[in-house]
Simulated assay, not measured.
Amino acid sequence: MHAKYSSTRDMLDDDGDTTISLHSQASIATHRRPGPQHTEQQVPSSAWRPAALTLLTLCLVLLTGLAALGLVFFQFYQLSITQQNNIAQKEERLGNLSQQLRSLQAQNSKLTETLQRVAEKLCRELYNKTGEHRCSPCPEKWKWHGNKCYQFYKESKDWQGCEYFCIAENSTMLKINTEEVLEFAMPQSYSEFFYSYWTGLSRNGSGKAWLWMDGAHYSSELFDIIIDFTSLRSRDCVTILNGKAFSKDCRELRRCACERPAAIVRPEWLY
Rank of each mutant, 00 (worst) to 15 (best):
Q105P: 00
N177W: 05
N177F: 08
L101R: 14
C135Y: 04
L182M: 09
R134Q: 12
L122F: 07
K121M: 09
T130M: 05
L115W: 02
L104V: 11
P187V: 05
N170M: 05
E91G: 00
N85L: 11
P139S: 08
C166A: 05
K90W: 07
S103F: 08
R134C: 01
N86R: 13
K175F: 01
I176N: 03
P137V: 04
A88D: 14
L122Y: 08
N85W: 02
E169Y: 07
C135A: 06
N96T: 09
Y153P: 00
G131A: 06
G131R: 07
C123M: 06
L182Q: 09
A106W: 04
P139I: 01
L94E: 10
C123D: 05
N128V: 05
Y150M: 03
E163R: 10
N128Q: 13
Q105Y: 08
M186S: 08
T82P: 00
E163I: 03
E183P: 00
I167V: 10
K90E: 13
E125R: 11
A106E: 13
N147Q: 11
F184N: 05
Q160P: 00
L122G: 01
W159Q: 11
Q100K: 12
C138G: 05
L94I: 12
Y153Q: 03
K154W: 05
L111R: 13
T178F: 04
N96A: 15
L104S: 12
C149N: 03
L97H: 08
D158A: 04
N96Q: 15
M173H: 01
S136R: 06
K90V: 11
C135W: 03
T172R: 09
A168T: 07
A119N: 06
Q83P: 00
A119W: 05
E132P: 00
Y153W: 08
S109Q: 15
I87L: 15
I167N: 09
L94M: 11
N177Q: 12
G95Y: 07
R134V: 08
A185C: 12
N96P: 00
K121R: 12
T178G: 03
Q188W: 03
M186A: 09
M173P: 06
K143E: 12
K154E: 12
E91S: 11
H133A: 09
A168C: 01
E155V: 15
G95S: 15
Y150G: 01
N170A: 08
R93F: 06
K110C: 00
